[in-house]
Computed example of a mutant assay.
Amino acid sequence: MSTPTTTTAAPDVARSGVRRRPSPTAVAPWILVTPFLLLFLFTFVLPILMALGQSFTLVEREGLFGEEGVTSTFAWFENYRLALADGQFIASIGRMLLFGVVQVPIMITLATVLALLLESASARWPGFFRAAYFMPYGVPGVLATILWSFLYVPGLSPIVDTAHAWFGLEIDFLGAGTVLWSIANIVTWTYTGYNMLIIIAQLKAIPPELYEAARVDGAGPARLAFSIQLPLIRPALVLTTVFSIIGTLQLFAEPQLLAQVAPAIDSQYTPNLSAYTTAFAYNDYTVAAAQAVLIALVAFVLSFAFLRLTNRTSR
């Protein structure tokens, strides 16, 4: 009796010896995105890492201008201690927190109201008014500040001169107690239209069937706004608020230019202006780097806290 023999299949030499090449469809996206990744790396990630590294570095210069040598050592948190010991820098952060608490809600409310009005069924020439409200955002911040300064400076401002001549009122837009809100007025004028367009884009994504069903149930414009539009544009409101919180701590051009006509604005009026002064007026780049990291940290904490709060309230 013969025993059955079993045969084993030979390995596929061609399949095991040749490495498969990636398909063009898998490689093409990486080729297309590589320029952006490189630009993002060298213009965003790398500067952040360099600033973070400098914030932990202590630079010692020998000689008046460092001509006898420059040595760098690891400073641990010494630069952060010096930054936090600067009372003017801490005051500038507190000033911007007050600025944001007042200015951001006003701006977001105005942007929301304008968006709802322009997207209402009774709105006339909505395209024209959208462009008109958005136009201030197209004006550079430097020019916007110069334009508004003509309305703030006594002797040039028709508002100040008219109030004094006709009503006997002394209006000082650039005083110590008012200049912060004069800056807030410029920022609100500039960015309300920008935030309005973001909200309008969210409004246009609402299905028309929801409006039709609500009108069948007898809902008026106010009921549509509060029951359908405002709840559904919540992501846009959160996004614009977070952007505004971050932008509040980044104020720089407006106070720097108004400082030429407003003695109440010093060289450390805002956090960014304080870091700029520390770096380029005092040549203390490591402490300025620590200040920049602290500004970014405060912006992150405020944005994160706001997102957590909105997520909790939505539940």
Rank of each mutant, 00 (worst) to 15 (best):
G17L: 13
P136M: 08
A296G: 12
A281K: 12
A123M: 07
L210S: 12
A176E: 10
P140D: 04
W166G: 01
W76F: 13
A163G: 10
A205I: 12
I159Y: 01
I228F: 08
R61H: 10
L258A: 09
V70N: 09
P235K: 13
L52S: 11
A176W: 11
L37P: 01
A279R: 10
I206S: 04
L32Q: 15
L117M: 15
R95K: 14
F42H: 12
G17D: 13
W181P: 03
Q250A: 08
A91H: 05
T6F: 07
A222G: 04
P105E: 07
S227G: 11
L230K: 03
G193V: 02
P263G: 05
A290R: 04
V293S: 02
S92D: 14
F128T: 10
V113D: 05
P235M: 08
L230R: 00
V70S: 09
L232I: 07
S303E: 00
L232R: 06
A289T: 09
T112H: 08
P271V: 00
L174V: 03
A144S: 06
W181Y: 14
D266K: 09
R234H: 10
Y80I: 06
L224Y: 09
V142S: 11
A214N: 12
S16P: 00
E60C: 10
I200L: 02
